[in-house]
């Protein structure tokens, strides 16, 4: 009884609205806005799903048991969730020691990138010296030239790298192949993984900072280095965070240089993942490809885990940082 009354009410209201032109317009506008919101939400959710679905799929696969893999009734939620895949993969990847070494390698390199690239960026942004424009054009060239153009000479150089017999003295044999030294050397000289982009970001950001800060520091008697480390770098926090996230992610995921310099998989864990499936097939006699894939997915999840944790921690500062830092130019 109540229902019919309410519907009647609504119809009466609608009639009243349509008789008044202004109110009709208002209603139509609201409907239009509502539709737009729905369309936008649909697009965002759809694209978000495309991005997230492989990750969700991998997580689901990695915790499902052998039975679930063949059960057609299982969709998204495994019937017998198990962590045994992780247990085996942890062992085969030699996970904790390797990831510790890898993180040490990645984080020290990131620290170096931050120091060197911010210094170079600052030098370009604040000082005038002859040839500055040409040199800055070289930074852009460095960004544009793909790393593979110079891979062979780099390989040749580091293969027989032996300035003044120093390497032979320390290591016994000339050449730095198979060690992490080439990566550190290149980063130290501002040519690490995508250093050009970081220099560019820092340069743009420092250029946007007001000159008065530095002048005040100078008047108060601070030296150039003090000004740089204690004042400018502290003010450049947004771009420092941006570069930190980029650098950690790209260094951790980098396989190009790791392959080129034959850096051992004891240090770079992502080199282990390509051999994981074969290792599990040979050592544990798991010959079913479908089951092997479950183990592989567990391995992939384990490898991306540290980066995801770092990203989640820095995420909030990061996106704001990108917006405020000079990435835009």
């Amino acid at each position: 009884m109540q229902k019919t009354v309410s519907i009647k009410d609504i119809i009466a209201k609608l009639k009243a609205t349509f008789q008044d032109e202004d109110q009709t317009k208002h209603l139509l506008n609201n409907v239009k806005k509502f539709c737009l919101v729905i369309v936008k939400a649909a697009i965002l959710i759809g694209v978000g799903y495309v991005i997230l679905s492989p990750v969700i799929g991998m997580i689901v696969n990695s915790i499902s048991s052998n039975k679930d893999a063949y059960n057609p009734m299982v969709f998204v939620l495994p019937e017998n969730p198990t962590l045994e895949k992780y247990a085996l993969v942890l062992e085969r990847l030699d996970y904790f020691p390797t990831i510790a070494r890898d993180l040490l390698y990645t984080i020290t390199l990131t620290g170096l990138q931050l120091l060197i690239c911010s210094m170079v960026g600052y030098g370009f942004a604040r000082f005038d010296f002859p040839g500055k424009k040409i040199l800055f054009a070289c930074v852009v060239v460095m960004i544009v030239i793909p790393a593979h153009t110079i891979m062979l000479p780099l390989y040749m150089t580091f293969k027989s790298f032996d300035p003044f017999g120093l390497v032979t003295m320390l290591k016994g044999t000339p050449g730095l192949m198979g060690t992490v030294v080439p990566m550190y050397l290149m980063t130290l000289l501002g040519c690490g993984v995508r250093s050009g982009i970081y220099i560019y970001i820092f340069n743009q950001f420092f250029r946007g900072l007001p000159k008065e800060i530095e002048e005040a520091a100078l008047v108060d008697g601070a030296g150039v280095w003090y000004t740089y480390f204690r004042i400018m770098l502290m003010n450049a926090m947004p771009s420092v965070i941006t570069v930190t996230v980029f650098s950690i992610v790209w260094q951790f995921n980098d396989t190009f240089y790791a392959k080129l310099f034959l850096i051992s998989e004891e240090v770079v864990i992502s080199k282990r993942i390509s051999g994981l499936q074969a290792l599990i097939a040979n050592q544990d006699k798991i010959l079913d490809v479908t089951i092997q894939e479950l183990y592989l997915h567990a391995g992939v999840i384990l490898i991306i885990l540290p980066v995801i944790i770092i990203y989640c921690v820095l995420q909030k500062y990061f996106i704001e940082g990108v917006e405020r830092s000079g990435i835009v130019g």
Binding site: M119, G123, R126, F127, D128, P153, I199
Partner: peptide
Amino acid sequence: GLTGILFVLPWVVGFILFYVRSLIM
């Protein structure tokens, strides 16, 4: 200007050593 060159120097050395030289090679 000199201080500026000092700031940029590590990168200049790296660029010449790793990029210019490598491109020529």
